[in-house]
Write a protein that binds this DNA or RNA. Structure first.
Length: 508
RNA sequence: GGUCCGUUCGUCUAGGGGUUAGGACGCAUCCCUUUCACGGAUGAAACACGGGUUCGAUUCCCGUACGGACUACCA
């Protein structure tokens, strides 16, 4: 169909990258990988005011964590650099000059304040063919005046001269043909007074120079795409213009509108891939990583927000996503962010992860609690807990009692079940379990001891086992009792039995 | 306000002129399980509305409503 595919993910380093951005990166990545193309990271740092130190590093780290490594980008090399727009200032100046030379742009000397005033007077004010002649620019001013203002170094911008009467048709891969009339378009600023380009100029110049074939970005860019087409036209690049695909937005879980960082704190849910630490705690946010979500699960979840393969398969590895991905299958309507679904994906991924890997992921959390379990033991723990967790921190939260004493008993259940006559039975049980040789302490052995005792004493499993479970874990929930006992070990089980018998009596 | 985009169960979605409108999350019930989960089964749950076009529209067209994005010397 065309040359090798080259796509770019072009965030601006104004803070943490939220999951909408991650999904955009993902779709770009998928298209590139599917066709053995190139995935480029370009940092759009042309706004010096909004620039946030550390944001670029954050973006790299987030992409790395997600497994979406760019092939070209800042610090990664590539033949089309530099990949940071602030380092390409001279390039944009040159192209802005070209626009000027071609009569496609003009100098504008209006101050931001003057324009502000215009907008206040007239809400619908637009800097365009209808208004430009009464404003301060090289089209309205006598030539000598323009020359003078320039020579004296008056601050000025360069604006695109939009000619009315043109029809712009964007053949969007997601939305089909979208038409705009140039009469509706304003004369966008191309080069700001500080000499840096606006998004519009930088974007078009870079996409052209970097030989981008597909622009996959959020729907918020659709309206300005008309300007972008005009720019390609002005430069004479229209025939090699990239194809556009505008993605549906990711919406707030509740209410309306697109998902924002504030929704995260407001609803107590992560909206960033990894945590963002700001000096101001108000502007610090957790991430999916810290929440205990596996990157593969996040990606799988995100991929399905606005796209699906048309089959009933839902669990896809990154490679499978790559194989199945196609732009035609991207939906048009906004997709609401649903944390429950994200959790479900995570649970599926945890269940599918082998215990050795799981143990590696869980270990730091356990060590943070001050415990240093042996590998094999921790793997055993993971095996018992794997089907009972949805997020990584659940391993500790739901299974802490494997590492340290029971914090509290399920009193209600003890009161309901504990009977004086059980006391002797439990003491017997303690004795019998003490008799088991340490080397014999295994699930089936323990089970046999308990069962035979229950038979001899005429206790029903239903009266004994729940209490045994509470004695050992404090709760009615958890892995099979005998497997639990095997992992806990004889000493711990005997100790907990003793303390439990004593406490249960008091709860009666 | 203007321009542009969108609208299938609560949510993510499949489908597409004639279907019992399919799946997934969540929810409910049941089975499995001497717990909890996992797993399995079942159930409730949707084509925004009004006009066309058509033998027949959820599907095509036009309106309406609703929602959204954009409307900066921000991206």
């Amino acid at each position: 169909m065309m040359g090798p595919i080259r796509v770019r993910f072009a965030p601006s380093p104004t803070g943490a990258l939220h999951i909408g951005g991650v999904r955009t990166a993902l779709y770009n990545y998928l298209l590139a990988k599917k066709y053995q193309g190139t995935f480029i990271l370009r940092i759009e740092d042309t706004d010096q005011v909004r620039y946030v130190p550390g944001a670029e590093a954050y973006i790299m780290e987030a992409l790395r964590w997600c497994g979406l490594m760019p092939d070209e980008g800042p610090g990664l090399g590539g033949e089309f650099g530099p990949y940071r727009q602030s380092e390409r200032k001279a390039i944009y100046a040159r192209y802005a000059q070209e626009l000027l030379d071609k009569g496609q742009a003009y100098y504008a000397f209006d101050t931001p304040e003057a324009l502000e005033q215009q907008r206040e007077q007239d809400k619908t004010f637009k800097y365009d063919a209808a208004t430009r002649l009464r404003l301060r620019n090289s089209l309205a001013l006598p030539e000598a005046e323009t020359v003078r203002l320039l020579a004296e170094g008056h601050p000025h911008t360069i604006r695109l001269k939009v000619t009315p009467g043109q029809t712009i048709v964007i053949q969007d891969l997601v939305r089909g043909d979208v038409r705009f009339q140039s009469d509706e378009l304003d004369d966008k600023v191309m080069l700001k007074a500080d000499g840096l380009p606006t998004y519009h100029l930088a974007n078009i110049v870079d996409d052209h120079l970097m030989q981008i074939t597909h622009v996959i970005r959020g729907e918020e860019w659709l309206p300005s795409t008309a300007h972008h087409v005009l720019l390609y036209r002005a430069f004479g690049w229209e025939s090699e213009m990239p194809q556009f695909a505008h993605l549906p937005l990711i919406l707030k879980p509740d209410g309306k509108g697109k998902l924002s960082k504030r929704d995260g704190v407001r609803l107590g849910i992560p909206v960033f891939p990894i945590a963002w630490e700001d000096e101001n705690p108000e502007d610090s946010f957790t991430g999916f990583r810290e929440f205990g979500v596996l990157p593969e699960a996040l990606l799988n979840f995100l991929a399905f927000l606005g796209w699906n393969p048309g089959t009933e398969q839902e669990i896809f590895s990154l490679d499978e996503l790559t194989a199945a991905f196609s732009i035609e299958k991207i939906g048009k309507a906004g997709a609401r962010f649903d944390l429950d679904k994200a959790k479900w994906f995570n649970q599926q991924y945890i269940q599918a992860t082998d215990v050795v890997t799981l143990a590696r992921m869980v270990r730091p959390m356990i060590e943070a609690q001050g415990h240093q379990p042996a590998d094999a033991w921790l793997e055993g723990f993971c095996a018992l807990m794997r089907d009972r967790v949805t997020l990584l921190p659940d391993f500790w939260e739901k299974g802490y009692y494997f590492f340290e004493p029971v914090r509290e008993y399920d009193v209600k259940n003890v009161q309901k079940r504990w009977k004086p006559e059980l006391r002797a039975g439990f003491e017997q049980l303690h004795a019998r379990l003490s008799d088991v040789a340490g080397s014999q302490w295994q699930g089936p052995v323990v089970q046999e001891v308990v069962n035979s005792l229950m038979q001899a004493q005429n206790f029903k499993p239903g009266e004994v086992l729940p209490l045994l479970r509470i004695a050992l874990a404090g709760t009615m929930q958890g892995p099979a009792v005998f497997e639990m006992m095997a992992l806990l070990g004889q000493t711990v089980c005997l100790q907990r039995l003793e303390t439990a018998i004593a406490s249960f009596d008091k709860m009666e």
